[in-house]
């Protein structure tokens, strides 16, 4: 908060460098290996770029907010069980409609339904917290247990479906950054844009929330209401990003830890843009490398989750900040 100090200046420089790097990645993504019908290729790439940036923004914001509310830096929002709910949802759809029916579902309807289901689930989970002061940790544990339940239900259903359908389902249960969902990009963009604006508007309140619940109340922040609102925003962001590309587990942890290392502060005015920029660099830059250097030999999501997992272990072993 003390903005008169030289330290935030250093953070500002690092932020600017990150922004330049992100722009570089975007430029590379758009321009490397252009061939054929330029207009068509550029339009296609712009669409994919938009969806990648949307996912980057959603995951980065969701993870920062989630870590602030839970006062825990090795958590990611996937602990709330939203991804298991998404998986269950896919399994039920395949189970009911079969592989062919699943592939031919109206994408927009499915997208809207999934988001509504996930946000509704989070509302049901957080509503009690609005009314009385329930411990956030208890809430998270409830999320973990329900997530387990959803997961077991999906594996039960998965045993009963046709092997071909199962292969299809398997594809749907990993994040896929290659498929373009042009029809969903606009709808997702609205939700994520509003979420980003809200987070930015309340960045100072988020700083206060990061202190501790009692301290925040003492400084005039209504903790239970603010925490519930923040968690609801997290749920909406995770829901949109999951519906766009599929479940992501450790990507958020990875980018927020890297961003915090770079700017060396938890102040949201700096950390939020930093985390978003790191996420954009990782996703857009990574996708460019995978398309043109590795030539699609492997999946970016797998590599990111692998790196995130390694980092998670490191953070656990260190027992403190990375």
């Amino acid at each position: 908060m003390a903005e008169a100090r030289p330290v935030p200046d250093r953070a500002a420089w690092r932020l600017a460098a990150l922004a330049a790097l992100a722009l570089l990645c975007v430029a590379a993504f758009m321009s490397i290996g252009l061939r054929g019908n330029l207009l068509f290729v550029l339009e296609l790439r712009a669409m994919r770029l938009a969806s990648l940036i949307e996912v980057a923004v959603a995951v980065a914001l969701a993870t920062v907010l989630f870590q602030t509310v839970t006062a825990n830096r090795i958590l990611t929002p996937s602990i709330m069980g939203l991804d298991s709910l998404y998986l269950l949802c896919q399994t039920v759809l395949v189970f009911v409609f079969g592989g062919f029916g699943f592939a031919n579902l109206d994408a927009r309807l499915k997208f809207g339904g999934e988001i509504a289901l996930m946000v509704g689930f989070s509302l049901a989970l957080f509503m009690p917290m609005l009314r009385s002061r329930i411990d956030v940790m208890l809430l998270l544990l409830t999320g973990v247990v329900l997530g387990l339940l959803f997961r077991s239900l999906s594996s039960l259903l998965a045993r009963m479906i046709d092997p071909n359908d199962f292969a299809l389902l398997q594809g749907a249960s990993f994040a896929d950054f290659n498929t373009v969902r042009a029809d969903l990009v606009a709808a997702g963009g609205v939700v994520i844009g509003v979420g980003a604006l809200l987070a930015w508007r309340y960045r100072h309140v988020l700083d206060v929330m990061g202190l501790a619940p009692d301290t925040a109340v003492g400084l005039g922040v209504s903790w239970s209401r603010a925490a519930a609102a923040a968690l609801l925003l997290v749920a909406s962001l995770v829901a949109v990003s999951t519906a766009l590309v599929g479940p992501i587990y450790l990507f958020g942890l990875l980018v927020v830890a890297i961003a915090e290392r770079i700017v060396d502060t938890r102040r949201h005015a700096v950390l939020l843009p930093a985390a978003i920029l790191v996420a954009v660099v990782t996703l857009v830059g990574g996708q460019t490398v995978f398309q043109h250097v590795v030539k699609g030999q492997s999946a970016l999501s797998v590599v990111i989750e692998f790196a995130g997992g390694l980092l998670f272990l490191l953070m656990l072993l260190n027992g403190r900040r990375p």
Binding site: A2, R5, V208, G210, L211, T215, L219, R266
Partner: peptide, 16 residues
């Protein structure tokens, strides 16, 4: 209190 804060930042929160 979150430990990754400078003293001046912490005191500044009092003005929130």
């Amino acid at each position: 209190v979150a430990s990754r804060l400078r003293v001046a930042e912490l005191v500044g929160f009092g003005r929130f």
